[in-house]
């Protein structure tokens, strides 16, 4: 796993494609790609040239490669005593995800709390985590919703990464962050990083950090969350109860389990769900303890900034800003938190 800084190397951009090709020889490689007019998304690469490392962070987080939107759990065939049940395989082929933003890598640590940190390990998730290496890309230009520095993160954060690439124009500064990361660079011709390279990378990191103001003291916000505060109504009144925020969020992880059945067999799978849907807490008898968006926004914010802190000691938000940018009615969690903290709206 992670060790202290193992040094850094320089990967010229002209060598990037051949490095990726080398990885493709041994791993399944996932990276941001642009398919037609679709937003950037982490997808398995067929060829190195399909990768897009420029631009803003992909709108869809890499969490879908650890908890897919739809995931078979088991299949069954037959009926009654003649029933055959086949659980999903938990193995996974070696995977490298390229271009992971520091907020997303940190977010996977939050998913680990939920899926690995309890008495029963989620073996499907565990299989994928163990088999996947993460190659990070420092953010040069934060997106307009980004606020990682307000929740203890950084556009150049290394938490959870095996390598961190910093774009220096014609080359990447590659921080080696783990043995596995170092192994990924082993077969590539790269020079060690010089002091001026390191300084250039540092300067870029600092500039990116400067582009975001720290808006609130996230560590302390959990205690300020109040059940009956007017902040919920003020922001939730316009909420449309869609799932955009939760489905794009790199730490949101709620799922539903469903069976699809035919006459002679079927499949049990899990799929993403969200506490923002009206149906989420509706009980069989029709009672719904969270009957409106007011309760649901309160739940979302409290879960991320209070309950998860109480349970695991860490917030369920890494400040990626996707929810801010995707919300159809501009419910900005930064505004909500600022108001909770007692600052100006």
């Amino acid at each position: 796993m992670r060790q202290d800084d193992l040094g850094a190397v320089i990967l010229k951009k002209t060598d990037l494609a051949s490095w990726v090709r080398g990885l493709l020889g041994s791993y399944r490689v996932v990276a941001p790609v642009r398919e037609g007019d679709a937003p950037l998304r982490y997808r398995p690469l067929a060829v190195a040239e399909a990768m897009v490392l420029d631009g803003r962070r992909p709108l869809r987080a890499p969490k879908e490669h650890f908890i897919p939107q739809v995931e078979p759990l088991l299949a069954f065939r037959g009926s009654g005593k003649a029933l055959t049940v086949q659980p999903a395989a938990t193995g996974e082929s070696g995977t490298v995800i390229l271009g992971v933003r520091p907020c997303d890598a940190r977010a996977l640590g939050r998913l680990d709390d939920v899926f690995l940190g309890r008495k029963d390990t989620d073996t499907l998730y565990e299989g994928r985590r163990k088999a996947t290496r993460l190659v990070g890309l420092a953010c040069a230009t934060p997106s307009w919703g980004c606020f990682c520095t307000s929740v203890g993160g950084s556009p150049a954060g290394t938490e959870g990464l095996d390598l961190l690439l910093t774009d220096l124009g014609d080359r990447y500064h590659v921080s080696l962050l783990s043995d596995a990361g170092r192994a990924l660079m082993a077969d590539t011709a790269c020079e060690p990083s010089t002091e001026s390279d390191a300084a250039a990378a540092q300067a870029q990191h600092a500039a990116a950090i400067d582009r975001m103001r720290v808006l609130f003291e996230a560590e302390a916000i959990g205690e300020k969350v109040e059940w009956d505060a007017p902040v919920w109504m003020r922001h939730a009144r316009r909420c449309l109860a869609c799932g955009a925020c939760s489905f794009l969020c790199p730490t949101c992880h709620c799922f539903d389990i469903q069976d699809e059945v035919t006459a002679d067999g079927g499949l049990r799978f899990r799929c993403w769900d969200t506490c923002q849907f009206g149906e989420f807490t509706r009980m069989a008898a029709g009672h719904n303890p969270r009957p409106s968006q007011v309760e649901r926004l309160r739940q979302r914010v409290s879960h991320k900034f209070k309950y998860l802190v109480e349970e695991f000691g860490r917030m369920g938000c890494t400040g990626c800003g996707r929810c801010v940018e995707a919300c159809p009615v501009n419910i900005d969690i930064r505004s909500v938190l600022t108001e909770i903290e007692g600052g100006e709206r």
Binding site: P44, H65, Q69, V70, E71
Partner: peptide, 10 residues
């Protein structure tokens, strides 16, 4: 049922 994701999620 899941033509876009193989059995191990890829």
């Amino acid at each position: 049922i899941c033509p876009e994701f193989g059995p191990t999620g890829e």
